[in-house]
Computed example of a mutant assay.
Amino acid sequence: MPKFLTTPEGRKIAYHLTDGTGPAIIFLGGFKSDMGGTKAVFLENWARGQGRAFLRFDYSGHGDSSGAFTDGAIGDWLRDAQAAIGLVAGPVVLVGSSMGGWISLLLARAMPDRVAGLVTIAAAPDFTEDSMWAGASDAQRAALMTDGQIALPSDYGDPYIITRRLIEDGRDHLVLRDPLPLPFPVRFLQGTADKDVDMAVALRLLDHAQGADMRLTLVDGADHRFSDDSCLALIADTITDVIARR
């Protein structure tokens, strides 16, 4: 059973915290994902075997946390993550998957003194603007502004309900338009067969961010889930490398 924390905004965030040595590894999941996903559970078990502290949690409106998904936005989920990180002391290594990659970059910008390293997996920075809004038709944009939400098809089940607030709040949290210093070891992981986040996004992120120790690894044939045995092993090895180089 998860434990719960209450954020300053009053949201109840479900989490699992494994005690161990630092820096603690913080897993940040994706859009409409929960902390019971393959990568999060694998990394928890791996971290436990390493004797290392590990935290996974559900953003509000996701998994076991309080709230409705359609009420949330990037800024809310960023503040949820900040509250969750408050559960651990000292430096942390952020591991952000998809939207969690965007959240991890926001965290790195907001609390650089806490971040010892960063690993992203199919990071999707600024996707509300560069994918959802940019890919919407004129009719969809008009409906979004008039009705407050639209439904977009999803390969992962029910359609995504996209709200006007999600789009407008996303514009307040973009990371690819302003300087993005990452003064710690950074590893970006990206599959070449990812249909949700194009390789161009990873290349743009690598080009845009500023840091002395940044690398992008492309995995031939890996999809957005990035969850087969070889990909999971690569994530673990990459975290090990980041910790060793911090």
Rank of each mutant, 00 (worst) to 15 (best):
L180D: 03
S60V: 05
I26R: 01
R109K: 12
P125W: 05
A244L: 06
L105D: 09
D126C: 15
S227H: 11
P112D: 05
Q210E: 15
H173E: 09
T146F: 03
G36A: 09
V92H: 02
R141A: 05
G51C: 08
G191E: 11
A84V: 13
A233S: 15
R165T: 09
T38D: 02
E168R: 10
R52W: 03
D196P: 00
V186P: 12
K39M: 05
T120M: 04
L87Q: 10
S97Y: 02
N45F: 00
Y59F: 14
F42C: 03
A68S: 14
I85E: 00
L176F: 05
A202F: 10
T6K: 11
R246V: 02
T70S: 13
A209K: 04
G22L: 08
T192Y: 03
P179W: 09
E9A: 14
R171Y: 08
I103M: 08
K195G: 04
A123T: 11
D58E: 08
L206R: 14
D223Q: 08
A73S: 12
T7I: 11
R11D: 06
F4Q: 06
P91M: 04
D237G: 10
I85R: 01
I85Q: 00
R187S: 06
P2D: 07
W46V: 03
D130P: 00
Q149N: 07
V219T: 09
T192L: 03
T146Y: 02
K195R: 10
D19W: 03
S230K: 05
G63H: 07
K3I: 00
D130V: 15
A68Q: 13
R245I: 04
G90P: 11
T7H: 05
A89D: 15
G211P: 04
L206N: 08
L166S: 08
L174R: 15
R79W: 11
S137D: 13
G135I: 10
F27Q: 01
R215C: 00
I235A: 10
I243N: 14
G157R: 09
L105F: 09
D241T: 15
F4V: 08
P179C: 04
V175R: 07
L107M: 14
A122R: 03
K3R: 14
I235W: 11
G101S: 10
L216C: 12
S104P: 07
I167M: 12
T6L: 03
F127G: 07
M35L: 14
S131C: 01
T146V: 13
A142D: 09
S104M: 07
A108E: 02
G90C: 09
G100N: 14
F31N: 08
L174N: 05
A110G: 07
T163K: 07
D207G: 11
F127Y: 15
T18L: 11
R141I: 12
M214A: 13
R164V: 02
G96F: 09
I162K: 06
D64E: 13
G117L: 07
F31K: 02
Y59L: 03
L118S: 11
I243G: 08
G61Y: 01
L118H: 10
F188I: 15
G75K: 05
R187K: 09
